[in-house]
Design a protein around this nucleic acid. Sequence first.
DNA 1: AGCTATTGAGTTGTGCACAATTTAATTGTG
DNA 2: CACAATTAAATTGTGCACAACTCAATAGCT
Lengths: 167, 167
Amino acid sequence: MTTTPDAAPDAEILRLDRQICFSLHAASRAFNGVYRAILKDLGLTYPQYLVMLVLWEHGDLSVKTIGARLRLDSGTLSPLLKRLEALGFVERRRSAEDERSVTVHPTAAGTALRERAALVPRRIAAATGLSLEEIGDLQERLSMLTAKLDGADLDLDPLGSCADPED
Amino acid sequence: MTTTPDAAPDAEILRLDRQICFSLHAASRAFNGVYRAILKDLGLTYPQYLVMLVLWEHGDLSVKTIGARLRLDSGTLSPLLKRLEALGFVERRRSAEDERSVTVHPTAAGTALRERAALVPRRIAAATGLSLEEIGDLQERLSMLTAKLDGADLDLDPLGSCADPED
DNA sequence: AGCTATTGAGTTGTGCACAATTTAATTGTG
DNA sequence: CACAATTAAATTGTGCACAACTCAATAGCT
């Protein structure tokens, strides 16, 4: 009841957007919640677990490299890594060659954690009720979507050129 | 190289988990980023937009009802609604019948915002490069997944019964 | 009526995300 | 060599998510 002659009415489109927004938001939080519950045993949060995963996979890494892999900036990583250090799972050391860089490496406790973490994926799979294939499929879709979103030039349409095309 | 004889080795499973974790996390953040950029024009954050969407759709709602619809608790909503009120988009008023309840209703400015918000979904669709159908499909998958995750009894397996089935 | 239990918002504290800024180290260039 | 530009972390400030708790109002029960 706003304008819009032939196309879907605004109210309809906004309703759809609400569904999409909400689904994404809710799914993200639901996953976070499941990981939180499962990771509580390990004493890790979800982002901390992500950091440990890349460290287990690649060994010592600089803050910059971790950030590049997880697409997290220092504003997020610096305090997170301090907490991981306080928990005794990693150590941070200024690099000798380049004093700007900080190298993060897992401690013995951090490495030991990997054994227990091996159980996490199975529990996640059980919680989702999805097969590994289905999970892989979802993951692929999400990756493609993320790539598009990250690459999207939002300046295409600064709310002006696209403004009221039907008005 | 940890244990695991016939099944996928732990390292492999953890690598897969890293991919899934990361994809979800990254997708969620990428979407958030796109919405953030688009909503900046309206002066809203992504969760604030979600709240306005349900208010536009249903009119005045109690904090409790908004929370039920968006699955957000008062710890998140109370400060968020205060900010929306400070922005002049909603008003909060203690209900007369039940003094515990607070009713939130859009102001004139909040209602006016709806017109401008009508452009948001199209811009999102453009950024994703997906058709409305594809978006709908993704949304449906995510909703089902969320339902499963929210309903999942994580106590099934408190990291003990499932522990080292192959060890 | 009187008392307990429950309910709806709000508050507090922790952690993450992100923008913007700061600091120190390094690189590049004249 | 000196100086400007760049780079890597860290810091600051805002907002969201969630757990745990408080507080006042209501509902339910005897």
